[in-house]
Nucleic acid binder design. Structure first.
Lengths: 119, 119
DNA sequence: CGTTCAGTACGACTCCAATCGTACTGGATG
DNA sequence: CATCCAGTACGATTGGAGTCGTACTGAACG
């Protein structure tokens, strides 16, 4: 049974999510591909383990990369169905699609949470 | 708890495995990357579910690709640590490193076994 | 309404993976 | 030893992903 990662309460009046694959369209190849980089594993793991808000703008992650690179990776995660993104004014915030991923790929997120980056 | 995939009895006098990463060196990024293609998911899934021998030469899989392409993919799986390969005379046979993967990434192989290719 | 700022769009560049044809290797077999 | 055959090695090609600079957009805010 996959661990139930803490999902913080949804604020009301959420902006609509950006385009994303439906649960039925999630494909293991795509998800695996999105998680085959240490940068993206870092992003997803941090969301799983350190979220103190419902969702997080990419600034929160403290990643030392140019903005255009971050756009690229957050988009890759969303298009694979790993994360959901919502636009709040200027900010675009991400959360992990915990329920959807646990439903389709039980145990996958546990692997990400247990992952540790290479020193 | 990961499912215990049936591991057939090891014949005696096995040829030495080809070079492969040790259990401690298995990296989730690499394994995910190796499993981010439907062809390679097909290979690993078939080994998990349909093995009627200890290990299998690439001919057994019935993949309709040129030989040099198959070499490429079997090597990718071995170098990521997903499979182990042994040379039997002319044949090079593959098996999934079930125990190693279950130890380091419990549940991962269940995802592969549950995967079904896109029609 | 002008400024600020998060993030995008676009494009250039680089690099690697995938694909596959052809030639080769080296055990197996007679 | 000659042949056969599984699979490799090598190299060419292609496409896609990663990286990032620069210009742009559009909401927020005074």
């Amino acid at each position: 049974m996959p661990a139930a990662f803490k999902t913080l309460p949804e604020p009301p009046d959420l902006p609509e999510p950006l385009p994303e694959p439906s649960v039925a369209d999630l494909r293991l190849e795509e998800v695996m591909g999105a998680l085959s980089s240490s940068l993206r594993l870092t992003i997803v793991r941090k969301l799983l383990l350190e979220s103190e808000e419902f969702d997080h703008s990419c600034h929160w992650f403290g990643l030392d990369r140019p903005k255009s690179s971050l756009t690229h990776h957050f988009k890759a995660l969303r298009e694979a169905g790993v994360t959901r993104q919502r636009q709040y004014g200027l900010e675009r915030r991400s959360q992990v699609r915990v329920d959807d991923l646990n439903a389709r790929f039980p145990g996958l997120l546990d692997l990400v949470a247990a992952w540790t980056p290479q020193p």
